[in-house]
Amino acid sequence: MWEQFLWVIYPYLVITVFIVGHLYRLNNHPFSWTSKSSEFLEKRVLKWGSTLFHWGILFVVIGHVAGLLVPVSVYRALGVSDEAYHVIALSAGGIAGLAALLGALLLMGRRFRVKRVRATSSVGDLLVIVLLVIILLTGLTATGTNVSHTGFDYRTTINPWIRGILTFRPDASLMEKVPVAFKIHILLAFGLFAVWPFTRLVHVFSLPITYLSRSYVVYRRHSSR
């Protein structure tokens, strides 16, 4: 029952909160849908931290989609051997993960150490950045220690399990032999998705498409008399 809760019930609870939470916030608190920029409070650390984190996490997400949602049979049909796949995944994924982690650590240090930034931070802001750092750490640790040393292949376990969740055919037995480090990483990631709708992370779904058609804002120097 415990395994069923963790790998079947818990994911669907999180997905429900994720979807309903976003809809509720958008309909009832639309003006809270913001990234709450703190650039005017501190710029130097933000520039490096934000750049490293956002570029790193972008490629981390792409790697997760390619690794978790694409069946292993597709790669083999394309002629990509298991050895080649793992080399690419470990090298490219490792670089992206380290960049995202370094950026997240800079942003976390900035949020806790810069007084003005800390004073304007909510509990959600602090919780999210700490969660992100832990998730990135556990992900890099799990991949580095298990895939490279034990030969564990998440494409034959976690991959079909997550696809089963998305296609409403969950199978908790697929997670039985998954290393503990991966399980901790997955559970924490779902925890992040659960709090996502109630934090600044909602800005991920805000695309500034209207900026393409907006008129330019013209600034003119005021001539003093």
Score class of each variant (00 low, 15 high):
H149C: 05
R169H: 15
T120N: 07
D125W: 11
G164M: 12
N159R: 07
R169G: 01
N159M: 07
I129S: 01
L132D: 04
V178A: 02
N146T: 15
W161K: 05
L166K: 04
R163W: 02
R163M: 08
G139I: 02
F152Y: 12
T120P: 00
I186Q: 01
V130F: 12
A172K: 06
F152N: 02
S121C: 13
D153T: 07
L136C: 08
F182E: 01
T138C: 11
I186C: 04
V178W: 01
D125V: 10
P179V: 08
S148T: 11
V130D: 00
L174C: 06
T167A: 13
V178E: 03
I129W: 06
L126M: 15
D171S: 13
L126G: 01
L137V: 14
R169M: 14
A181F: 13
S122T: 15
P160T: 09
I162W: 03
Y154P: 00
L140I: 11
P179R: 05
L127R: 12
T143G: 00
V128F: 04
F168V: 15
I134L: 15
I135E: 05
T138S: 10
K177R: 14
T156Q: 14
A181S: 14
F182M: 05
F152M: 05
V123M: 14
G124F: 07
N146D: 13
I129Y: 04
K177T: 15
F182K: 03
G124N: 06
H149N: 15
V133L: 01
V130T: 13
V147N: 09
F152G: 02
M175E: 07
I129A: 00
G151T: 06
T157D: 10
F152E: 02
T145Y: 04
I129Q: 04
R163Q: 12
T120Q: 15
L140Q: 05
L131V: 11
L136I: 08
S173P: 03
G164L: 11
T145I: 12
T167H: 10
L136F: 04
L137T: 12
L136T: 04
L166R: 05
K183W: 02
L187Q: 10
V180Y: 13
R163E: 04
L136Q: 05
M175W: 03
E176R: 15
E176N: 14
T156K: 07
V130R: 08
K183M: 07
H149T: 15
L131I: 11
G139Y: 02
R169W: 13
G151A: 03
S122C: 10
V130H: 00
M175S: 10
S173Q: 13
S122H: 09
T156E: 11
